[in-house]
Write a protein that binds this DNA or RNA. Structure first.
Length: 554
RNA sequence: UGGGAUGUCGUCAAGCGGUAAGACACAUGGUUUUGGUCCAUGCAUUCGAGGGUUCGAAUCCUUCCAUCCCAACCA
């Protein structure tokens, strides 16, 4: 039985089917990607739905590759999809299937259809087919080949299968109703000739089944009970049902449609994602700016945060666009609780503490994760010369700026209070160094005389800091809905990636592996990028910390 | 001008005839060596609009309006 969490309409349907014993106690779902691109977070929604239902109702969820179009498909995508589903934490166990597993069965069922007089070989070309189909408001007209004899259909279909015909010349069509108001029912194509080699069956087959036929039949063959898909397939449901009914097959899965995921400031369509990769608008399928699972993973998103997001957005039938802020909330929530803290300076400003001895080093204790009651501690070397962030100093600050300023004082995180005595500039007037003094009696937020200092700055020892590269990501598109542009590529944000060199980070983080995530205190969440080498570390910014400091920086 | 679907807060989303959950966002206070976290408070007299049924309607009926999907030998 389902857990007592809020039910969406699909779970209600399943509960009802269980009550009426429509499929006995069976609940079987499936996630059916076509291996023609990388999975994105919209797929994660579907994965969480299908595998989540399977988990809760003790049924299997099949992973089935819908590989009926060899022209676009590739093993590389099969591999990436498997990796991504696994990474998200779902397990298809031994239920790994391919539509191509059923090509022989599907072929035989097609012969059945022909023998029943429910399918015929049509010689109309694409153009003519379109003309005969009619329009949204006018009925189509029957193909001149519609009434071929069963024998002739059989013979032609066999020849198609044998590879006697070139692509496009002959196609097997279901004989339904050219006047149907649902265009999908106007004698849809069932099989077409394709010469491209198939990633699994090679050149064994010359003809390949169309989605509408292959999908419902595959569901049925696998004993799927609930076939969940997105809204745009609503118009296909009558056809889904038609094949199964006409062939009089016992297992008749129920197709249920839900709204696909949209998120503002990005695009979620395989076609567009592929275009971004191919046109080099981004560097790869796992570019951290992309909403692909691989991109999010490299960006530093955790499986838990993505699953939490999918659970929070819900399942419904309304076309909707989720605010990217919710996704960011989910990763912050996860990382705030779980990420180790580190001090890193993105824009270093040197600070010399004049009253601190030249060669002295103190090792100051700092919590690895203050959110963890059992946190361990790390040691930070404190020296006369340190770096703070440029943003933490202003020569002419506005009201309510409580970071460092001339003559002002700040708390140094895990360390002493320092007071700014002098600002040093280069010939062009750029601030290049601060001369400060520290108060030995004011440490870790508390001053001996009880005085309150509002601002806190993070820092690293100039002597012991390690140089790293940091990549800052911003939204990939400038507007909320890039689709509203004639060409969504025109809306690309030219500043979606900023690379910072010479960032300074504490050097006692231990052995780092690609993917390791941290909170850089007061700055954001970052993770080690796979471009890192043992000499040169590269960090990706997953997401910044929330910042309620509203005053405009001059 | 055909068919299918959908309209509840800025964004998601519960609600299924008994008098508008929750989350994100936003705002304001408090705590805090992270302007983070956390805590508290506020945020739909109203459910696309109009009419009707009912003691009572977001929920039922009706008309209208808006939006999305469909004319690949893609999935």
């Amino acid at each position: 039985m389902a857990k007592t969490k809020s039910k969406n309409f699909i779970r209600s349907i399943i509960d009802n089917d269980l009550r009426t014993q429509k499929n006995g106690d069976r609940v079987v779902t499936r996630f059916p990607p076509e291996p023609n691109g990388f999975l994105h977070i919209g797929h994660a929604k579907s994965i969480c739905l299908n595998f989540g239902i399977a988990d809760d109702y003790n049924g299997p969820c099949h992973l089935r590759f819908d590989d009926t179009n060899p022209a676009n498909e590739d093993t590389m995508y099969v591999d990436s999809i498997k990796e991504d589903v696994k990474w998200l934490g779902f397990d298809w166990q031994d239920k790994l299937f391919y539509s191509s597993d059923y090509f022989d069965k599907l072929y035989n069922y097609a012969i059945e259809l022909i023998k029943m007089g429910k399918a015929y070989i049509c010689e109309l070309d694409v153009e003519q087919m379109r003309e005969y189909r009619g329009t949204l408001t006018e009925a189509g007209k029957n193909s001149p080949f519609r009434d071929r004899s069963i024998e002739e259909n059989l013979e032609l279909f066999t020849k198609m299968a044998n590879g006697d015909f070139e692509e496009g010349k002959y196609v097997l069509r279901a004989k339904i109703d050219m006047a149907s108001p649902n265009l999908n029912m106007r004698d849809p194509a069932v099989y077409r000739v394709k010469n491209a080699p198939h990633h699994r069956t090679g050149d064994k087959f010359k003809i390949y089944p169309m989605y509408d036929y292959a999908h419902c039949m595959s569901d049925s063959i696998e004993g799927i009970t609930h076939s969940l898909c997105t809204l745009e397939f609503e118009n296909h449901r009558p056809l889904y049902d038609w094949f199964i009914d006409e062939l009089d097959i016992e297992c008749h899965p129920q197709q249920i449609e839900f709204a696909r995921l949209n998120i503002n400031y990005t695009v979620l369509s395989k076609r567009k994602l592929l275009e971004l990769v191919e046109t080099k608008a981004v560097n790869s399928w796992d570019d951290p700016r992309l909403p692909t699972i691989a991109g999010l993973r490299r960006r530093g998103y955790t499986p838990g945060s993505i699953k939490e997001f999918c659970s929070r957005i819900g399942i419904a039938k309304v076309d909707s666009t989720v605010d990217i802020a919710l996704l960011e909330y989910c990763i912050r929530e996860d990382l705030n609780k779980n990420a180790k803290r580190a001090m890193a300076i993105l824009n270093p400003l040197k600070v010399v503490i004049e009253n601190y001895p030249e060669d002295k080093v103190e090792y100051l204790k700092a919590k690895v994760n203050p959110e963890d009651p059992n946190t361990s501690y790390r040691e930070l070397p404190f020296t006369r010369e340190i770096f703070i962030d440029h943003d933490d100093f202003m020569e002419n600050p506005p009201e309510k700026y409580f970071r460092l300023q001339p003559g002002g004082e700040v708390k140094l995180k895990n360390s002493y209070f320092i007071k700014c005595q002098e600002v040093i500039k280069d010939q062009d007037g750029n601030i290049i160094e601060l001369r400060c003094t520290y108060d030995q009696e004011a440490f870790c937020g508390k001053a001996a005389d009880g005085r309150k200092v509002k601002g806190t700055a993070h820092w690293v020892s100039a002597k012991y800091a390690q140089d790293v590269e940091v990549r800052l990501y911003d939204r990939l598109f400038k507007s909320e809905n890039p689709q509203s542009f004639d060409n969504y590529l025109d809306d690309l944000n030219p500043n979606s990636l900023t690379v910072l060199h010479n960032c300074k980070i504490e050097n006692n983080l231990g052995n780092l592996n690609s993917g390791d995530g941290f909170q850089f205190e007061r700055t954001g969440y970052f993770c080690v990028d796979k471009d890192s080498t043992s000499e040169a570390l590269v960090f990706n910014r997953t997401v910044s910390l929330k910042d309620s400091f509203k005053i405009k920086k001059k």
